[in-house]
């Protein structure tokens, strides 16, 4: 293949990957009149930000975003708090139980979420946690836990054990060694896992759909779907605007952790 052909192929990919995104942006900036025109235009003739204002007027976007924020932050913090000691143990101490636990984390990926969501729903109902943000948080923690464990375990293993042992030999206690030597090296991985937990929860739809019933407790993905309505008729401009806004936090955080997430996924994929 010549270079020109390769460039052409890559251009094809860029177009395929970019065109829906550009169309979303274009739709968000169009006036209703232009949207109704028979010939769709790529670049809005008279770009407007009115759709963004309308989006906030049409649905309780701000409230939904706040609720999503609460659930996502809580999910990230709880998951990492629970998973960190676990990941440390799994990385440092080899035992049959540990191997089974980490094997399970992999195997559990095969099961469809219905098998988890129905029992969780029944338990939450008994605890009167259906239709509450607390209930959704519990479910999100279970959903993020396996990959968080997997990621954190990888980051712990990347910290040379010798460093830790050297510090312990130097007279620092095991805990001091952990705090002084391991914690700083582990911090970036912990931040990456926190952000991963946040993004997963912020983006999550199915569990929210099952757990949350009233508009007053809805998270952002549910509110976005509500824009479309049961008949599928929607004011496309505000819908596009709201969709763009909902994507911003995920994109920003993802940009920060992208590299580390890649290595986490690689560890999973290569070692299988």
């Amino acid at each position: 293949m010549t270079r020109a052909l390769k460039h052409l192929a890559l251009l094809g990919y860029v177009v395929f990957l970019a065109f829906p995104l550009l169309w979303l942006l274009s739709t968000a900036l169009k006036t209703p009149q232009e949207m109704a025109a028979l010939d769709p235009t790529w670049i809005p003739r008279r770009p407007t930000l009115a759709n963004f204002a309308d989006a906030f007027g049409e649905q309780d976007l701000l409230g939904a975003a706040l609720r999503s924020l609460v659930v996502a932050v809580a999910t990230a913090l709880i998951t990492v708090t629970l998973a960190l000691p676990a990941a440390y143990a799994l990385a440092r101490h080899r035992s049959a139980a540990g191997r089974i636990a980490i094997g399970w984390v992999l195997v559990s990926q095969v099961f469809p979420v219905v098998l988890v969501i129905i029992p969780l729903f029944m338990v939450l109902r008994r605890l009167e946690l259906v239709n509450t943000l607390a209930g959704l948080t519990v479910v999100h923690v279970t959903f993020v836990m396996p990959f968080a464990l997997w990621m954190l375990r990888g980051y712990v293993r990347a910290v040379p054990r010798e460093l830790e042992e050297a510090a312990a030999v130097d007279g620092a206690g095991r805990l001091r060694a952990l705090a002084a030597v391991v914690a700083p090296l582990l911090a970036p991985g912990v931040v990456a896992t926190l952000l991963f937990g946040f993004i997963s929860s912020w983006n999550e739809f199915l569990f929210a759909l099952v757990i949350l019933k009233d508009p007053e407790v809805e998270t952002l993905p549910l509110t976005l779907v509500r824009f479309v309505g049961p008949e599928g008729v929607a004011r496309l401009g505000p819908l596009a605007a709201a969709s763009l806004l909902a994507t911003v936090p995920s994109l920003v955080f993802f940009a920060i952790i992208q590299r580390r997430l890649r290595s986490g996924l690689m560890a999973g994929a290569v070692k299988g």
């Binding site: 983006n203 993905p221 819908l239 596009a240 909902a246 995920s250 994109l251």
Partner: peptide
Amino acid sequence: ARVLAVVPWAMPPVVIGLMWRL
């Protein structure tokens, strides 16, 4: 291309669905 290739990963599935509906 590298940047574009990872963007869908970060997007909420709901937004991807709505975007393609557009």
